[in-house]
Nucleic acid binder design. Structure first.
Lengths: 149, 149
DNA sequence: TTAATCTCTCTAGTAACTAGAGGTTCAAGG
DNA sequence: CCTTGAACCTCTAGTTACTAGAGAGATTAA
């Protein structure tokens, strides 16, 4: 039997986070003491560890919820879990591409600052570079990177 | 003179986003019409473009605010801008490392699902692997991914 | 002039927590 | 047994960077 604090320490999260997970239906204590305090068993610990691990890997709560229900529903789980992993892998790769571009850009910017003549700082100009085209009726479609990295 | 909609279209954002930027003090219209509608000039457009560009590169609003004030204050700007870019570059590189690990992990997971015997799905087990560090009082530096990717 | 399209403000919602107030319970020591 | 102090409880509100919608007023083209 673990208190919420022990569980929290084991999984490397804070107690409020566990309460939050409970509130959104990810994890529940096996019981409460007479006084109303939460008590967890090893299953609870494992579950929290799983959630934490998945979060640290960058999975969203929604995805974790999905994985958990897949795990509990032993009917046709594997294909679904596989699909989830794949989807997330795609997301991650897209993110990495964006970050790589960003890294190059920032390196350029920092470099510009290094080399720049003291008086004319290039950093801001560098940042402004590659900015959007001026207002123009031909609006077609500007691609927003939306859900930023 | 641009309306908020024209500005939005030019910069690839939605009007509410511009109002939001105004609310938090990033950008303001040069004037309002008699009827109270916002009007912007080319400076406004440039500023919004700058903000958008920086956001797309992953900079936080706080950092952008900093850069803007640096840009407006022509005293000792370059060192500061340089510092900001460097800081952000470090952040980005740390993020990329995490994402690389994540990518490997997910590839492994997806692979496990591919190869897995149909009955024993390895995905969930794979996710649970490499779980948390054991409970430990010296909890000083657990690196939480906090401000997620 | 009229209709269509914008725009206005305001409120509330999103993700994934974190922080704090004010009060209760638990476990250990005397 | 009783007290202390740490841990726990619930609840509200704040964070970041927006997005969505309601209901009303402004602008513009035909």
């Amino acid at each position: 039997m673990f208190s919420i604090g022990q569980l929290a320490k084991s999984a490397g999260v804070k107690p409020p986070t566990i309460r939050y997970y409970e509130e959104i239906g990810l994890i529940a204590p096996i019981e409460r003491t007479e006084g109303g305090q939460r008590r967890y068993d090893h299953d609870g610990l494992a579950r929290l560890a799983f959630i934490r691990q998945a979060r640290d890997l960058g999975l969203s709560i929604a995805m974790i919820r999905d994985l958990i229900s897949v795990g509990e529903n032993r009917d046709a789980p594997c294909a679904r879990a596989h699909e989830l992993a794949r989807t997330h892998l795609d997301l991650v790769r897209a993110r990495m591409l964006r970050l790589q571009k960003l890294e190059a850009e920032l390196a350029r910017i920092a470099g510009a600052a290094d080399e720049g003549v003291a008086e004319t700082c290039q950093v801001l100009a560098a940042l402004a570079d590659g900015a959007p085209s001026p207002p123009d009726a031909s609006d077609s479609g500007r691609i927003r990177s939306s859900k930023a990295a």
